[in-house]
Structures are given as C-alpha cells and as structure tokens.
C-alpha cells in the first residue's frame, strides 16, 4: 500500500503542476486525476466513476484573475483513491459513491487554501527576484521561476500524498462502519450529484439561444436511455 501512495503522490504532483504552474494540458481535470488514482489503487473503472461526476461539478467556478476555484484535482485524488479501494475490483456501489463525492468537498476546500498559501509564498520569491534584478543579477529571473515551480511541485506532491492517504483511510476505516442498509439510505442523494454537475455546465454554457436546447437535449437523451433500458 505504501508504494501505491508514493506513486499517487508523484502522479498527483504532475496533475497539480499542470493545474496552474505549467502547461495546462488538462491533466489536472478530475476525470483524468480520479481515473489515474483508481489505476494506481487497482481499479481505474471505480476511479472513473467518481471522476465523471466530479469533472463537471466545479466547472462553474472559473480560475479568473486572483479568484481561486475549489481544488477539484484534490477532490478527485481523494475520491479516486477511496473509490478504487472500496470497490474491490467491482463497480462502486451507489451509497459509497455518494458518500465519497460529498466528502471530497472538504479536500476541494483544503486544496484551495493550500493553493492560496503557495501563491503568497511565491510573492516573497517574486520580491527577492525583483531585488536581485535591481542589484544587477540577471540569473535571478530563472532562479525565481525555478523556485516558484519547485514550490508548486512540492505542494502538489504533499497534497496528493495527504489526499490519497485520506482516501485510503476513509475507505478502509470509515465507510465499512456503516451497514449496507444505511448505505442504501444514503442512495437517496445519489441521483442529485450528476444534476449539480449538469447545472454547472449549463451555467457556463447558458446564453439566450442555448437555454431551451439544453432541456431539449436532456429530453432526447432521457428518452433514449429509458427506452434502451426497457428494451434490453
């Protein structure tokens, strides 16, 4: 288990770097991060199950200027890890699924706080860079960037270690505390979560001409899914 958490830390660190500091190739998206964590802990299908829903929920909050969105990468690292362990090679049951998505919100907010802290420390690095430049040290720019990048990277690895560690703990100790009957009760919330994600996309994509198209597409997909389900 320990080597898996270490691997999660390294891969999660790469996802985190992609989030702000480097490239932005979307390797930090919850679908990618959760599936990756699922694979590390032996069940990528279960990781993807939570990733698919987490992918959309936080889209509405754009990373504009200095305004930081919740850390959906961190939420996905936690939920993907826990999902793979709970599912034990099968698909994730609805109760655990719901519990994990809802618990992941704590990690999204914790990660956001950590992100703000890194950016504050970077302020100090930027100030040192500026002062060194004033003294005529041209190397300072490259050193400053390297320092900032390293800080983002270290923070990413530490967060990934902590969040996937928390995923292991929650799935091993917390979730088994509840009997299957109680988990079934938790199911009541299960259908709501994808709807929150859909609302998030709808809010981003909403213009006057798209409002009715959204519900039209929903009706068509709904009809097709139900018919397909009834026929098969």
């Amino acid at each position: 288990m320990l080597w898996r958490i270490l691997l999660a830390g390294i891969l999660g660190g790469v996802c985190y770097l992609d989030r702000t500091a480097a490239f932005q190739l979307m390797l930090h998206r919850p679908l990618v991060a959760a599936t990756l964590m699922g694979a590390v802990f032996g069940n990528f299908q279960a990781g993807a199950q939570v990733g698919i829903v987490l992918e959309l929920i936080y889209l509405v909050h754009l990373p504009v200027g200095a305004s930081l969105p919740p850390d959906d990468t961190g939420a996905a690292i936690f939920a993907g890890t826990a999902a793979a362990i709970v599912a034990e090679g099968r698909l994730l049951d609805a109760g655990s699924f719901t519990a994990l998505i809802l618990l992941s919100v704590a990690f999204a907010e914790l990660g956001k706080g950590a992100d703000a802290t890194v950016r504050k420390i970077n302020g100090r690095i930027a100030r040192i860079t500026r002062n060194s430049l004033e003294r005529g040290d041209l190397k300072a720019v490259e050193h400053g960037l390297l320092a900032g990048l390293t800080l983002f990277g270290i923070a990413g690895v530490l967060l990934s270690l902590a969040f996937s560690g928390a995923g292991v703990a929650v799935s091993t100790y917390l979730l088994p505390q509840f009997s299957p009957q109680l988990q079934l009760d938790f199911n009541a919330l299960h259908p709501v979560l994808p709807l929150v994600g859909a609302a998030s996309v709808f809010t981003c994509g909403r213009t006057e001409r798209t409002a009715y198209l959204f519900f039209l597409a929903m009706a068509v997909a709904f009809g097709a899914t139900v018919l397909f389900g009834w026929v098969v």
């Binding site: 709807l195 709808f202 994509g205 213009t207 798209t210 409002a211 039209l216 597409a217 068509v220 997909a221």
Partner: peptide, 11 residues
C-alpha cells in the same frame, strides 16, 4: 449546453 443536457438526460 447541448452535451450538458445529454449528460443530465442520461443520468
């Protein structure tokens, strides 16, 4: 928006 509607419909 269209894809989001489809996603909601499927679920």
């Amino acid at each position: 928006a269209v894809l989001g509607g489809a996603y909601a419909g499927i679920f």
